[in-house]
Design a protein around this nucleic acid. Structure first.
Lengths: 340, 340
DNA sequence: GGATGCATTGTTAGCGATAACAAGCGCCGC
DNA sequence: GCGGCGCTTGTTATCGCTAACAATGCATCC
C-alpha cells in the first residue's frame, strides 16, 4: 500500500540522513555563515532527496512571526482596489511572501480593527492597509506599533510609511488639457467626498482652474458608479454652457457618455470628457475615453519595498512615496463648439 | 513606562488568572463538553480581562493545520475572477477562516503546482483552485489528496468537489431570447477556446440554435477583451444579414457596440446584442446591455460549504454543484429590422 | 460500605522549528 | 609547547498549544 501520507519529513529526518544535527540543517536553511561548504552540500542533498519543506507554523511559533503579509482592503470589485490587490499579491509572491487578505465591508474603525486583529492572530510579518477613505483614519491611530505597517492612500499625518498616487496632479493634467483645448472652464463630477482619491482629484481640478483664472463651477457630487455619472450627465446635458467635463473615474464617465448621447449631445463635438483610472475598456467607450492612468503595480511595488525594509531592518523608517499618474489621450476631447 | 509590548498573554497566563490549568483554558476555547459552567465563565472572564487571543501558529503546529484557506487563481483583473475572489474571501471570513491568495501568471501545470506548494507550506486547512482553463487540468491530477480541495470551474472528470456555473444554460437563454424576438439566427463572438466558460457559452448558443432549427453561423473567435469585441464588430457590422449577436462577455459587447455605432448600425433597431457577466456598468452601455448574470457569491458560498464539509468531516465527499445563471433583460434587444 | 462510573480537572508529552550555550578542533603567537 | 581564539557542530531549552492519559470527586448501585 501507499505510505505517502505517513508524515511529511521534518528537520530531524533531514539531519539523520545527512548525518548532522537538526540545528545544522536549520543553519543551512537560514543561510548562516560558519557552516562548512561540504556539510552544506550534504544537507542540501538530503533536503532534496526527502523533498523536505520547512514547517512554517513551527518557525512562526518560535520566531513569533510568519512569512505572511496581511492586506486589509475594502471588499470591492472596483477597478482601482481590485487592481491594487492583484498587483500587491504578485509582488509579494515574488519576494517569497504569502498574502492573506482581510477585507472589510465598510472602512470604519471597528471593521478595520477586526481585520487587523485577525491578521495579527496569524502572526503576519507585516501589514498593508489600503485606506483610501477618511473614515479609516481613526483606525490607523490604534494600529499596533510593533508590526511593520504600510498604508496605501491613507492620511499622511497618521501613517509612518505611506504610498499614494498624486491624484491632484492627474486631475490638474486633465483639467489643463481641456483648458488648453479652448474650453472656457471645466465641470467636475466628483467621487464620494470621504475618499482621499476623490478629494485629491477635486482639489487638482480646482487648482488648475484657479491657476488659469477660469471660473470654478459647482462640483457635481457623485459616487464611483456609472449610475451616478449617468445621473450627473442627465443634468449637465441640458446645460448648453457645459462643454467640458472631468469625471472622478471612468465608470462615471461611461454613465455620463450615455446621458449625453441620450440628450443628443455629441462627444467630443459638443462636450469633451475626461475620466480617471484607465480601465481596460475605456478605449472602447463611445467615443474612446481620454483618462488618467494610475500605475498600480508601481504602487504595490513601492509599498512592498517599504514593508520589507521595515521587516528586515527593524528600523521604523518613516518614508512616504508618491507615484505620479499619467494622462492617456484619446478622442473624447476636442475644442469647444463655436457658439458657446 | 508603557509595558504593553512585553509579551502578549499566553494560555498559561489566562489559566493562572482563572485559577485553572492551561488545559482547561484550551477546553473552553475549543468548546469541549465536560467543563463546568462556572469554570467556563471564570475562564471566559480571564480571557476577556487579559485580552487573550490564541496563537494560531502554535495551534497549527500541533494540529498540523491552520485556520487558513488557500486560493489559487489566475492573476487577473477580469470581472469574473476578481468577483469570485472577493466573494470567496468574504464567505471565508464569515466562517472564521483567513484567506491566503496565491495567484499565478498562467494556468499551466507548473505554475499551479508552485502556488499549491506555497500554500501547503502554510499548512492551509483547505485549498480552492479556480481553474477555468483546460490547461489547468493536468495540474489537478497531481493535487495532494490529503488536503481538502474544491475546484471552481474545472474539469468535472478530474475533480472530487467542484462548483461550476451552468454557462450553457445561460447562453441558451440568451440565444432563445433573441430567436423569440424574431431573429432568424444569432451570431456569436466567443471567448478564448481553452476556457471552460467560453466553451460552455458557445455550446449553449449552438444547442439553442439547433433546437430551434436555426442556421448556425460560424463562430467569431475572440478573447475576453473589449478590443476583441471591437474587432469582431468591425467585421459583423458590414454584414447586413447579422441582426443578433451574443458575445461571450460584457466587455466584448462593449467593443462590439462601439464598432456597430461607428458603422452606423443602431442597437437594437438594426442589431440586437446580448453579453454575459452583468458587469456593474452594463446598465450604462449605449444602449443598456441585456446580459446574463452569474451569481458569484452563490458560487463562493457553495464552494466554501463543500470545503468546510471536507475539513470537518474528513469524509472525501465527491459532490459537484452547479449554479444557474439568470438573464438580465435591458434594451439592447429588439425585433429584427423589417427587411432582412 | 466499597466498587463502579461519570463528570471534571490536572499532568505530561510532544508538534517542528530557532536561540543560546557548550564542546571539539585546528591554528596561532609567544 | 601551551593557552587562547575562531570556526564548526552538537545539546538543550523553549515558543504556545492540543492530545492522551491520570487523578480527583461525587453520585449511584448492590
Amino acid at each position: 500500500m501507499d505510505l505517502r501520507a505517513v508524515r511529511s519529513p521534518a528537520m530531524t529526518d533531514v539531519a539523520k540522513l545527512a548525518g548532522v544535527s537538526h540545528q545544522t540543517v536549520s543553519r543551512v536553511l537560514n543561510d548562516h555563515p560558519n557552516v562548512r561548504e561540504q556539510t552544506r552540500l550534504r544537507v542540501r542533498a538530503a533536503i532534496a532527496e526527502l523533498g523536505y519543506r520547512p514547517n512554517r507554523a513551527a518557525r512562526a511559533l518560535v520566531t513569533g512571526r510568519s512569512q505572511l503579509i496581511g492586506i486589509v482592503a475594502q471588499n470591492s470589485t472596483l477597478y482601482g482596489p481590485a487592481s491594487l490587490l492583484a498587483a500587491f499579491e504578485q509582488a509579494a509572491a515574488e519576494a517569497g511572501f504569502a498574502v492573506s487578505v482581510g477585507s472589510v465591508g465598510r472602512m470604519d474603525r471597528e471593521s478595520i480593527a477586526g481585520a487587523v486583529e485577525r491578521h495579527l492572530d496569524q502572526r503576519v510579518a507585516g501589514l498593508v492597509v489600503i485606506a483610501p477613505v477618511a473614515s479609516a483614519d481613526d483606525a490607523l491611530d490604534d494600529m499596533p506599533d510593533d508590526v511593520p505597517l504600510v498604508t496605501i492612500d491613507g492620511d499622511p499625518a497618521r501613517s509612518r510609511a505611506l504610498v499614494t498616487v498624486d491624484q491632484a496632479a492627474g486631475a490638474r493634467q486633465a483639467t489643463e488639457l481641456l483648458l488648453a483645448a479652448g474650453h472656457r472652464t471645466v465641470w467636475h463630477v466628483s467621487g464620494p467626498p470621504d475618499w482621499y482619491d476623490a478629494a485629491g482629484r477635486a482639489d487638482g481640478w480646482r487648482s488648475a482652474l484657479e491657476a488659469a483664472g477660469a471660473e470654478v463651477p459647482p462640483v457635481v457630487a457623485g459616487e464611483w458608479s456609472a449610475s451616478s455619472g449617468y445621473a450627473a450627465g442627465r443634468m449637465l446635458a441640458r446645460m448648453p454652457e457645459v462643454t467640458a467635463v472631468f469625471t472622478a473615474n471612468d465608470h462615471q464617465a461611461l454613465g455620463l457618455l450615455r446621458a449625453l448621447s441620450e440628450h443628443g449631445r455629441r462627444v467630443p463635438d459638443d462636450v469633451s470628457v475626461i475620466g480617471f483610472d484607465d480601465v481596460p475598456e475605456a478605449e472602447f467607450f463611445i467615443p474612446p475615453l481620454t483618462t488618467v492612468r494610475q500605475a498600480f503595480d508601481a504602487v504595490a511595488q513601492a509599498g512592498l519595498e517599504l514593508l520589507l525594509a521595515q521587516i528586515s531592518d527593524e528600523a521604523p523608517l518613516a518614508e512616504q512615496i508618491v507615484i505620479a499618474p499619467t494622462l492617456v489621450a484619446r478622442s473624447s476631447v476636442g475644442p469647444p463648439p463655436h457658439r458657446v
